[in-house]
Design a protein around this nucleic acid. Structure first.
Lengths: 285, 285
DNA sequence: TATTCCGATAGTGAC
DNA sequence: GTCACTATCGGAATGAG
């Protein structure tokens, strides 16, 4: 378990201030030393950095009308730069990551693990995880975060569980029965084609029971091979999950219940009703 | 001008009572004599007649789940069988027709002229109008109905008309200026593929200004060649307007303003806003 | 594949 | 091409002195 460290004073909520927080060392120093600076450290970082206002330019830099990019794509960086401003939404800060509750949870428990390394956090998953040390650290922290998610899941639905009853009713605290393994209900992985700029690892319970699941891509992005387990990285060069057509097919394919496998065609509303029922049964396992 | 004749007592509002109203003579007797009866008069009529309950069967005849037909398709026959039950919605009854206000008017004035002839009223337009005598009578009655529609249109929008001002302001009743010709704003015609079983001639003002115009087919069915002027019947055998593909294309094609010709693509809402403006200008012509 | 709003499109049921 | 209802699908904006 990592000790949480809040860094309210270490970063301003400004895009043009990209200094790594003091002590953010580990990941930043694995490949090359990088002095704290308000500018990107090298050409590559420059290339990957988000657009920012010229610090000395008085007139606002206008976005072209055809540039559909918006603030939203880079929004996750705020959690990294100023985690303390998000209150209880931020669960943990380590030298390497920030762990947050997803603002639009697609399941009963849905966390995001955000790497703090500027060298990596604007890379696509396939690119970022080509760095074995980076990947190893994230897998380790993600595993830890999953334990936290499992504990939260138990808190939320544990009282409904049949297999958890022995433990709940145990009085011999020195010799508790095991109870349900909630960690098995937690998935750790990436979206094949994220929309948000910053690398984020999903730590999510399997149930897909959430009012925020509102359309096909919400559901399919977590229940098809579009969701790539973190343990599967690095992907082989010829892994089918790298294929854009394959993944677009996953996103638009017919609905299939994650639990019973029933096919719902394109009947999203019927799927949603079914997920209610499955949730009740799943809670009671 | 025809004298109106109300026949409240002549027909019950039942599908299994298809007696021709007393005195409905003209059309019914043009081709062959047909005795009043509660059953279809011959094999052809039997074929074309709507499904009806067996009069002596106690148990209701259930429709199959795949039979998408409903009462609605035959609803217009009620105006023929029992016009008096519709109050002021029925404007005129002649031996040959019933003239009604459309319940869902797609323009400022929208009437339906319903032939009363059982021999014809379940035929498709192309089939029914293969009978020249039938066609001639309907064209004559439709022309009369259009005059009534024009008068109603003038009543509704005449005060806004610039070209009508001289007549409105005239005091010399013996020598009135002509004013606007509202008859030119009235269209008389058929839908190429009606959904209602019973033959109905649309008598409609050109404006398409109505809250009941709610989707593409509403608009295109009156503003493309899907709308076939009654004067064009009988259609030549090779008339393109008989082609189903052609007409489906008309129904689904991009919007085009009936007045200025502007193309609105598939932007129905924008078209609707534009029709508001055109209506204001059109009223003032 | 961020959300949200609006709108266009599609399927159904109607006694 | 009946209506009315629901729902699916599709595009566009999204910030901010």
């Amino acid at each position: 378990m990592y000790k949480c460290r809040i860094m309210a004073e270490q970063a301003e909520d400004r895009e043009d201030l990209t200094d790594p927080p003091t002590g953010a060392g580990l990941l930043e120093h694995e490949n090359e030393a990088a002095p704290a600076s308000s500018k990107p450290k090298n050409a590559f970082a420059e290339l990957m950095a988000p657009k920012r206002k010229a610090p000395t330019s008085p007139q606002p830099e206008k976005r072209s009308k055809n540039d559909k990019s918006g603030r939203w794509r880079g929004a996750l960086v705020q959690y990294i730069n100023n985690p303390s401003s998000f209150g209880t939404q931020v669960l943990r800060v380590t030298p390497n990551t920030v762990l947050i509750k997803d603002s639009f949870p697609k399941a009963t428990v849905h966390l995001l693990l955000l790497p703090r390394s500027e060298k990596h956090y604007l890379l696509r998953p396939n690119e970022a995880f080509a760095d074995p040390a980076f990947l190893a650290i994230l897998q380790e922290e993600a595993a830890s975060a999953a334990k936290l998610a499992a504990a939260e899941l138990e808190r939320l639905i544990g009282s409904s569980s049949a297999s958890n009853k022995p433990r709940l009713e145990a009085t011999d605290y020195a010799n508790q029965p095991p109870g349900r393994d909630y960690l098995k209900e937690i998935k750790i992985g990436m979206h094949a084609h994220p929309s948000m700029d910053h690398l984020h690892i999903h730590i999510i319970s399997k149930d897909m029971h959430s009012q925020k699941v509102k359309h096909k891509k919400h559901y399919n992005s977590f229940t098809t091979e579009f969701f790539i387990p973190l343990a599967d990285y690095p992907l082989a060069e010829d892994d089918i999950r790298r294929d854009i057509g394959f993944q677009n097919g996953n996103l638009s394919r017919d609905f299939k219940c994650w639990r019973c496998g029933r096919d719902f065609g394109n009947k999203f509303t019927q799927l949603k009703k079914h997920l209610e029922d499955e949730f009740e049964e799943w809670k009671m396992e």
